[in-house]
Simulated assay, not measured.
Amino acid sequence: MFKPVARFAAESLRYSAELILPPVCVSCAAPVTRHNLLCAKCWGGLVPITAPYCGRLGIPLPGYDGSGPHLSVQGFADPPIFDRARAACVYGGVIRKLVVRFKFEDRHEPLPLFLRLMRDAGRDLLADADIIVPVPLHRFRLLQRRFNQSALLAQGLSRASGVPASVMALKRTKRTKAQVGLQHDARRANVAEAFAISADRRRAVAGKRVLLVDDVITTGATANACAAALLAAGARAVDVLAVALVWRGAPAFLDEGEDVL
């Protein structure tokens, strides 16, 4: 009896809210049918990452026509410390604009969209995960931004999936310089030993399969450094899930613009 009443009340509130504040596209502000959606044009500007893709790195493999998981040349030649990485979209275009707004402009309208995309892309990772842990910010960077975008993503995924999240398990112990403009080896050196698990949080990850969450995977250097710290603390395995992934084979129309990663 109470569930239909609660649903009716929720729908009535939603309808009233949409009369006061009509839903618009979270990218271009064109009218849409529901809040937290993209219009058809902006949706067409996304490049979702679907099979076939590298089973380790999650990068698209457009030339592979096999039906099972496949390892890319990059994943074979330089395997990561983490087990599997997945991302919802190729970085660039519409998804880049939304990530920049979210990360640097304190605009949280894209968050529900990001969470839906990540749940779809990381369905298998979420099913296997024992705990969700975000990539942390250094405390000085956190003071500047006032929030950790990866922590918001981790908390949202936890609520949607039921997998517990520990936003304080992983700490950034070294104030690294920005990764902008750094090549792969320089990025790896920059974040080497920059993360750790505090003694009181080790029990949270020991023996667990950890799902590490970030907004964008660029070279995988940060994810590798985080995975090393988690494994050293006793984690059984580490997977990585992000909104977007930088891919050299991205379509030309995905003009990434200025690198802000």
Rank of each mutant, 00 (worst) to 15 (best):
E193V: 07
A235G: 02
I132C: 02
V260P: 03
V32F: 05
V73Q: 05
R101M: 10
M1A: 04
A85E: 02
A9P: 00
R159V: 10
V163W: 09
R172E: 06
C28W: 10
A17D: 04
A192I: 05
E256P: 03
D185S: 12
L126E: 00
Y53S: 11
W247R: 04
G122H: 04
Q74W: 11
A88K: 08
C42M: 09
A237L: 02
A237P: 07
P52T: 04
R86T: 02
H108Y: 03
T219Q: 05
P251W: 09
A186M: 14
V133D: 12
F253H: 15
R96M: 05
A40V: 01
E193K: 15
L241I: 13
L254D: 14
R96L: 07
G122A: 01
S12E: 05
L230M: 00
P52F: 06
A6V: 08
E109Q: 11
N190R: 06
C25R: 08
R7E: 14
P112K: 10
R187H: 10
R141I: 11
S16Y: 06
G66C: 10
R187L: 15
D259K: 07
P112R: 09
K97M: 14
P23Y: 02
G207D: 14
G93C: 03
G220C: 05
E109K: 13
F76R: 15
K174M: 06
N148L: 08
V238A: 06
H138Q: 07
A228E: 01
Q155D: 13
S16R: 04
A178H: 13
K3V: 14
P79V: 13
G181Q: 07
R119H: 03
R146D: 01
A232E: 01
V133F: 09
R96P: 04
R172Y: 01
G156A: 12
L98A: 03
Q179F: 08
T33I: 11
G75A: 11
D83C: 10
E258W: 02
P112E: 12
A154W: 02
G75W: 12
L153G: 01
G156D: 14
F147G: 07
A127N: 06
D185L: 14
I81Q: 08
Y64C: 08
D83G: 00
A232W: 01
L152P: 11
V243Y: 09
K3Y: 08
C28Q: 11
P22I: 08
G92A: 03
C54F: 09
G207P: 11
E105I: 12
A192P: 07
L182M: 07
D130E: 04
R145L: 03
L117I: 07
